[in-house]
């Protein structure tokens, strides 16, 4: 054996930037994340050519899953045109040759910061959420070792207490985005800083969601058809942002999550946060043929996806007999 035998032929860069061993580690940890939904799995988290805190966790997952046929969509705050989304999209395309898209319906892999698209995701799509802080307990316990023990013990009393104190003080739960949610009835998870509007989209969904925090080196997942229940008290229901009645000043779209744009007259206008939904609405309004997917919200109200199997493409011979249990999908 020679030294050359130990090394692969020299290449300026591995396919998808990460080398084979980095990818294998991520693959192994993603399996564990899927098998224990909502539980944070530590991983090495390689340094990538982007600053920590700028989506390096999501990026590593995307780089591991990507292949030259993967159609990739990248969004930041709901927008494909945000500068950091553009930067990540460009990087993914540059190191993988994968085609990019802005259309949620066309995408195989969606990497997102702080939003879940408004169109319902399918079973053949994977959503990768960038996570700045993976630890939902951090506001009540900044020490990670103690927080880990609390998860092990399912000791979420302080979490509940915090929500209760907010209700006493302010008359409601003051948590904005990152609403802590119980996954599969066992682990409390942060859904990443998506608005409350988006959390129901993870509950009993058809798609797989992978959440990855590069700086904090934790990965967790919500498989399809998994319960994701925001922490609420029986008599104080979960409330999404009051956006159902707002209208987008640019597209006329209604019933979706909006950005508020302050106006010089002291008031504010609203604009669709999911930029591609806005574009589609405008093109549809202008008479163009445009494919608009079914949305999670209808008339500003969340509608559970219709029950029934959606095995996605490429399933093999099976004696499997999907046998939906009624009521299993209601949030």
């Amino acid at each position: 054996m020679t030294l050359a035998d130990l090394a692969r032929p020299w290449a300026a860069m591995s396919y998808g930037f990460l080398d084979a061993s980095a990818k294998r580690e991520l693959r192994r940890k993603m399996i564990k994340a899927v098998c224990v939904p909502g539980c944070q799995m530590p991983y090495a988290s390689r340094e990538v050519p982007m600053a920590r805190g700028w989506g390096t966790g999501g990026l590593q997952v995307s780089l591991t899953l990507i292949n030259p046929r993967t159609r990739v969509k990248v969004i930041d705050q709901g927008a494909d045109d945000s500068v950091n989304a553009a930067s990540i999209r460009r990087f993914l395309a540059r190191v993988s040759g994968a085609p990019v898209t802005l259309d949620t319906l066309e995408a195989d892999l969606i990497q997102s910061r702080h939003r879940v698209p408004e169109e319902i995701l399918r079973s053949d799509q994977v959503l990768v959420l960038q996570v700045p802080n993976p630890e939902p307990l951090r506001p009540v316990q900044p020490n990670m070792s103690i927080a880990r023990q609390m998860h092990a013990d399912a000791d979420y009393g302080r979490m509940w207490l915090q929500l209760y104190e907010q209700i006493v003080r302010s008359g409601r739960v003051m948590q904005g985005a990152s609403y802590p949610s119980m996954v599969n009835g066992r682990h409390v998870m942060t859904p990443s800083p998506i608005p409350r509007w988006d959390v129901p989209k993870l509950h009993m969904a058809r798609h797989l969601t992978i959440l990855s925090a590069g700086r904090e080196k934790r990965i967790f997942a919500v498989p399809p058809f998994t319960r994701v229940e925001p922490l609420v008290f029986d008599d104080v229901p979960y409330r999404v942002e009051d956006h159902g009645g707002l209208t987008c000043a640019r597209s006329g779209a209604r019933g979706v999550f909006m950005n508020e744009i302050p106006q010089s007259d002291g008031g504010s206008a609203h604009e669709v946060s999911d930029s591609e939904w806005g574009v589609k609405t405008i093109r549809h309004r202008d008479g163009e043929a445009v494919r608009m997917g079914e949305t999670w919200y209808r008339d500003g109200r969340f509608v559970a996806p219709r029950p029934g199997p959606d095995p996605g493409p490429r399933s093999v011979r099976t004696d499997a007999d999907p046998d939906p249990v009624p009521g299993g999908g209601a949030p």
Partner: peptide, 9 residues
């Protein structure tokens, strides 16, 4: 988790 209701196999 991952199963829509139940799956027989």
């Amino acid at each position: 988790p991952g199963v829509d209701g139940g799956v027989k196999l």
